[in-house]
Design a protein around this nucleic acid. Structure first.
Length: 889
DNA sequence: TGAGTCACG
DNA sequence: ACGTACGTGACTCAC
């Protein structure tokens, strides 16, 4: 077996990767998509080939040899976008960290270096793999030199491989002839002029016939077609020049030895830290835990972690914490799993892990001891910081609502775009420390298991939580202050933690039998539809598979195919609705879809979450949505059907406890009212003051029609425009929604802006603000960064512009209802009412109300929601009551 | 695991 | 010319 060497064209692969992947930045704002794509391709090749030797060649940004010789052809190489430019040095650094040899030499292009090395390696008996995104290299293919061209296809990277025979088969010419082919046809991206009038087809014909440019000129009379022959005659010099330009050099003077291109220890600690910093999470699992131990990190930080199991010692630590100087932030993290409890405490650069034993004794601690200790500590009014406070509240002493900070909430406000805010994320972002993530520490094992064996890793894991919380909080608070978000944090987000906790604890009661019946009813319909569909289709297939369905509809039944989507036919409701009149099966399918959705997601889905108390305790998340909204999972209680009657019926199974009723309060068009306020547009504000149907008023103004004469069609259009404005209007999107042409949609938008000029000024202002500052802001100071606005890609940038218009509006509405939630919840509790807030659905609150408290609570809700913010237009709230959610809405 | 689809505001 | 509405989460299929 001969030795293998892999040679990679660095720029070309980076370039490919960059354009193949969507924009991706780490939390520092560094673009990383090119680097990630490059590494994916690199690893794929290393996995496949396991070569002994590896090197990556880069162009040096200087006039290159071939291009310098013919300066007149130098020039129009397309400027690299800024997002890519920065990734070149980044990639080189990463490769250096991985101890991979990089080759670059002033005066030579990467092509030439690669060509030289490939030929040299072949002579010395290596098997060569030459990896590039560029087909130019095909001229180097031989039986020993394989050209590999990665293609990013859906579902991963595929690599096309070319040896001599493959080139011949694909292009009909040998690799050597490929040079002549390219010289004849030219290549603008490489500044090869070629022969005018000769394209790919003609060039191929000529080279297949004559083998080379030289030979073609020797038999120039035989060259066909006539046009090509004449052009060749007239451009002879240019043709030969092109050939020189197209030829990759294989004789560069390089002082590199192939033997130097070995690589080893790619997955070392330096590389790990780089990957971690760039947040290339998907690649981290290639590092074995053995190489990157927790202990190393600990030593580096010089932090001592200590395990405490004795009462006396624990008391010492707690006492020391109380005595710590006033400016000290004490970090803590309390975790309980079944009978085991741990409290990690940290201050003054140290951290302790206090362990509660299952069998507490005179000397050992119980969970109660830990709780009591913590309560004493906290009542001493120092500043405390933790992570994921809401998840710890069940175990913390009751009634705390001041003095505890949650760095996760703070970090979210400072950058709401992250997907996670775990201790390692925050350590990286605020303390510049690289820590192993939970996943890396635990691997397959469970935390509990680790804890039982008092593994060093689990000690570090918990202690790091407390340590990071304590150390990061002062920095986070300082940054919040600087960015004018301290009030938002202290008066909205932190109090909301407790409100959401209350809601999760309470849950919502569900009629289990009712839900079962509802599901059974659906099943009957589904079975019936299934039969009908199979019958009309003439065969049994999986209706749930868009792929199989597409084949049936568009191939078997020959329905006019909506040609959309990448992977096949689109079978979305949007497409199917347009086909309803062509075949009865389509309507059945739509109905089937509706029923199966209700069955699987709601009837069956919700049933799985009903607890022993007959209630569903869903989770509310505060750090997910980039706009500041709350999100709901396990189950999602914010997307219970309402638009269609059949789906809406499911709300009948959401019921209050005996002796209670539901009160449901929702804001009327809160986003449009926020828009009226923020834009200050006088006519929009005036429109709201009339307290009439806003869509009708808008239609009346936009279409210059008296209010009473507005048609339902006009109103519908005006409503769609109103929505569109809030989403960040685009004529295409509006056209899609109203099923009208882009031109007509544009006309509507212009009329709208003529009607409400202040809105136009406001939205334009948001976009330019987003561009200059890099973020946009809500009325309450919440910020959303919009990196997309700096993109050179039209589509990405346009998206950024819509986000810039939408986020302050959606976000301000979110701020307002958060304020209302906190006040409603607090007030209900302060008045010692039994009624309780149980759900929030973006602009709606659901309260489980004691029947004798109905009127009190109704007023309270009205009052608190309406006055959560004082805007230039009033906030209107509709309140309804009922014995279940269906009736209350 | 990602794409497609669809439920909500 | 580009090819889309903003924000979420759950389920299913197919790789």
């Amino acid at each position: 077996m001969s030795k293998k060497i892999v040679l990679i064209d660095g720029h070309s692969i980076l370039n490919r990767a960059f354009y193949a992947l969507p924009a991706l930045t780490n939390s520092e704002g560094l673009y990383t998509n090119g680097v990630l794509g490059f590494l994916n391709i690199l690893f794929k090749i290393l996995d496949e080939e396991k070569p002994e030797y590896l090197t990556i060649a880069f162009d040096v940004h200087q006039p290159t040899f071939r291009h310098e010789m013919f300066a007149e052809y130098k020039g129009t190489r397309k400027g690299m976008p800024e997002e890519l430019r920065g990734q070149v040095p980044l990639l080189k650094e990463v490769l250096k960290a991985m101890k991979i040899t990089i080759l670059e030499k002033g005066g030579y292009e990467a092509d030439d270096i690669l060509g030289t090395l490939a030929v040299k390696a072949e002579k010395e008996g290596y098997q060569v793999s030459l990896v590039s995104g560029d087909r130019d290299l095909l001229q180097l293919a031989t039986d020993k030199i394989k050209i590999r061209i990665p293609k990013t296809k859906k579902g991963g990277t595929e690599i096309e491989n070319y040896n001599t025979q493959d080139v011949l088969e694909a292009y009909g010419v040998t690799p050597k002839e490929f040079i002549d082919l390219k010289a004849l046809m030219g290549d603008t991206s490489d500044n090869i002029p070629g022969v005018p009038g000769i394209g790919e087809k003609t060039a191929a014909k000529i080279i297949m016939a004559f083998g080379s440019i030289e030979n073609a000129y020797e038999h120039i009379d035989e060259v066909t077609p006539n046009k090509a022959r004449e052009s060749m005659i007239n451009n002879k010099e240019q043709a030969y020049l092109s050939k020189i330009l197209a030829t990759i050099k294989t004789d560069c003077e390089l002082d590199y030895k192939l033997e130097d291109c070995t690589y080893q220890d790619v997955f070392n600690e330096d590389a790990y830290n780089y990957f971690k910093r760039l947040e290339l999470k998907s690649l981290l699992n290639r590092f074995s835990r053995a190489n990157v131990s927790v202990t190393k990190e600990k030593e580096k930080e010089g932090t001592k972690f200590e395990v405490i199991e004795e009462k006396a010692k624990a008391q010492d630590i707690l006492d020391a914490a109380i005595k710590a100087s006033n400016g000290t932030t004490i970090g803590f993290y309390l975790a309980c799993e079944e009978e085991t409890a741990v409290l990690a405490l940290s201050f003054e650069e140290k951290a302790w892990l206090i362990l509660a034993q299952e069998q507490a004794s005179e000397e050992n601690l119980s969970l109660q001891d830990i709780k009591a200790g913590l309560a004493a500590l906290i009542s001493n009014k120092k500043s405390f910081a933790t992570l994921h406070l809401k998840e710890q509240l069940p175990f913390l002493p009751e009634g705390l609502s001041e003095g505890i900070d949650d760095i996760v909430i703070g970090a979210y406000l400072l950058n709401p775009l992250q997907s996670t805010y775990e201790y390692d994320d925050i350590a990286r972002d605020f303390l510049k420390i690289t820590l192993p993530s939970q996943n890396e520490i635990l691997g397959k094992g469970s935390l509990k298991e680790f804890l039982k064996n008092k593994k060093e890793e689990s000690v570090a894991y918990y202690c790091n939580h407390a340590l990071i919380a304590g150390k990061a909080m002062p920095l986070i608070r300082e940054e919040l202050k600087q960015k004018d978000m301290e009030e938002l944090y202290d008066t909205i987000e932190m109090p909301l933690v407790y409100t959401l906790f209350d809601m999760e604890q309470r849950g919502i009661r569900v009629n289990k039998e009712g839900l079962k019946e509802y599901g059974d009813k659906l099943t009957v319909g589904i079975d019936r539809l299934e039969k009908e569909i199979y019958e009309k289709a003439g065969e049994v297939f999986n209706i749930n598979s868009p792929k199989q369905l597409g084949v049936i509809l568009f191939e078997k039944l020959h329905l006019p195919n909506g040609k959309k989507t990448k992977t096949g036919y689109s079978t979305s409701a949007e497409v199917l609705e347009k086909l309803q009149h062509d075949a009865p099966i389509v309507g059945k399918i739509l109905e089937y879809r509706q029923l199966t959705k209700l069955k699987s997601t709601y009837a069956d889905g919700l049933a799985a979450y009903i607890g022993e108390d007959g209630r569903i305790h869903g989770k509310f998340h505060q750090t997910i949505a980039a706009t500041g909204r709350i999100s709901s999972t396990e189950p999602n209680l914010q997307n219970i059907p309402i638009r269609m009657e059949l789906g809406r019926e499911i709300r009948k199974v959401f019921i209050p406890e005996e002796g209670y009723l539901f009160l449901d309060a929702d804001y009327s068009q809160i986003e449009l009212r926020v828009l009226a306020h923020m834009s200050g547009d006088e006519r929009l504000i005036e429109a709201y003051k009339q307290n009439e149907d806003i869509h009708r008023i808008t239609a009346s103004l936009v279409f210059h029609t008296p209010f009473e004469e507005v048609t339902s069609e006009q109103r519908r259009s005006a409503k769609a425009v109103n929505f569109g404005i809030v989403y960040g209007i685009s004529s295409f999107g509006l056209g899609q929604d109203l099923n009208i042409s882009r031109k007509e949609a544009e006309d509507y938008i212009n009329r709208y802006f003529d009607t409400y000029p202040g809105v136009k000024t406001f939205l334009d202002g948001l976009v330019s603000e987003g561009k200059t500052q890099g973020y946009v802001t809500t009325l309450f100071g919440r910020k959303r960064p919009i990196p997309e606005l700096a993109s050179s890609n039209f589509m990405t940038r346009s998206f950024g512009e819509r986000v810039a218009m939408n986020s302050p509006i959606q976000g301000t509405a979110a701020d307002i209802i958060k304020i209302a939630m906190i006040r409603v919840n607090d007030k209900l509790k302060a008045l010692k009412l039994r009624s309780r807030l149980i759900l929030q659905i973006h602009d709606e609150l659901l309260i489980e109300t004691a029947t004798d408290e109905i009127e009190t609570v109704r007023k309270l809700l009205q009052e608190e929601m309406q006055h959560a913010a004082e805007l230039l237009v009033s906030l209107e709230v509709d309140v309804n009551e009922g014995p279940n959610w269906y009736e209350a809405k």
